[in-house]
C-alpha cells in the first residue's frame, strides 16, 4: 500500500530522510516513533505529498509519487491526514468541516454528505456537536472532528502525525479510542505517536527512527520489551520515565 525504496530528502543542507526503505501492507497499522527532529513528520508528510522527496521511490496505492501519470490531488482524496494541531477550518461548523471535501471533491449531494457526516460525527462521539464551531470544542473534540473529516472521504489510508501530543492528558484516551476503532475496521494506518498502549493494542509493527534513518522495526511486543539497539533503548527509557 505504501512503499519507500531508498528515499532521501534534504532541507537545504540537512539530510532529514536517509535512505528510507519501508513498506506498509494493506490493512496494516504501523506506529512510527523516535526522538524529536528525527524526521517522523517529514516521513509521513511525504506520503501525501505535503513534502516532496529528492531521490528514491515512493509508491502509494500503486502510484509512484513524482510520476507524470500520478495525479496528486486525486491520490490525496484516498489518504486521510490527521495533524497534531487539528487544523479544523475555524469558520465552519463541525458538520461543515466534515462535509466540505465530500461535497466539493467527491461531488456527493449535500443532503447525502450531511447524512453521512452526522453519522460519522456520532460515531466519534460528537452527536451533540454538529453545529459547534471549532473554537467551541475542546482539543479532544476537535481532534475527533478532524478524524471524522478524514473518514468521511472513505480513504484507503489514514496517516496520523502525533494526534494526541497537543492534548491535555485527560483528553488523550478519547482520541485514542476513536483511533483504535478505526484500526479495528481494518484501515491501513501509519501513526506517528509515543503512545505505547495504542501501539501494543493495534499496531502490527513499530518503526523507530533516529536522525532521519529507520533504526529498528519490530512488533510492538519485541520493540517495547526487548529493543535491539542502544538508541532505541535510550529513547524508550526516556519516554517510559513519565
Amino acid at each position: 500500500m505504501i512503499e519507500f525504496r531508498g528515499v532521501n530528502k534534504w532541507f537545504g543542507a540537512l539530510h532529514v530522510l536517509k535512505d528510507i526503505t519501508l513498506s506498509v501492507e494493506p490493512r496494516e497499522v504501523v506506529v512510527v516513533c523516535g526522538p524529536s527532529g528525527s524526521g517522523k513528520s517529514t516521513l509521513i508528510r511525504c506520503i501525501n505529498g505535503l513534502e516532496t522527496i529528492k531521490d528514491g521511490d515512493l509508491v502509494v496505492d500503486g502510484q509512484r509519487l513524482g510520476d507524470r501519470a500520478t495525479n496528486m490531488t486525486e491520490l490525496r482524496t484516498e489518504i486521510g491526514f490527521v495533524f497534531q494541531a487539528f487544523n479544523l477550518y475555524p469558520h465552519k461548523t463541525a458538520l461543515e468541516n466534515v462535509t466540505l471535501a465530500p461535497i466539493h471533491v467527491r461531488k456527493i449531494a449535500r443532503a447525502e454528505a450531511e447524512a453521512s457526516g452526522r453519522e460519522m460525527l456520532a460515531k466519534v462521539g460528537l452527536a451533540d456537536k454538529f453545529n459547534a464551531y471549532p473554537s467551541e470544542l475542546s482539543g479532544g473534540q476537535q481532534q475527533r472532528v478532524a478524524i471524522a473529516r478524514c473518514l468521511c472521504m472513505r480513504p484507503k489510508i489514514m496517516l496520523f502525525d502525533e494526534p494526541t501530543s497537543a492534548l491535555d492528558p485527560e483528553m488523550i484516551s478519547e482520541v485514542l479510542d476513536v483511533m483504535v476503532g478505526v484500526a479495528e475496521e481494518r484501515m491501513t494506518m501509519m501513526v506517528v505517536t509515543h503512545e505505547m498502549g495504542f501501539a501494543r493494542k493495534v499496531a502490527q509493527r513499530v518503526v523507530f527512527m533516529d536522525a532521519g534513518a529507520v533504526v529498528e522495526t519490530g512488533t510492538p511486543e519485541e520493540f517495547f520489551s526487548d529493543p535491539k539497539t542502544d538508541r532505541s533503548r535510550a529513547f524508550l527509557s526516556k519516554i517510559l520515565r513519565h
Binding site: 490531488t73 486525486e74 490525496r76 491526514f81 471535501a101 478532524a146
Partner: peptide
C-alpha cells in the same frame, strides 16, 4: 495543508 490533504 488540511485543505490540500483532503484533495481540494
Amino acid at each position: 495543508e488540511a485543505a490540500l490533504a483532503s484533495g481540494l
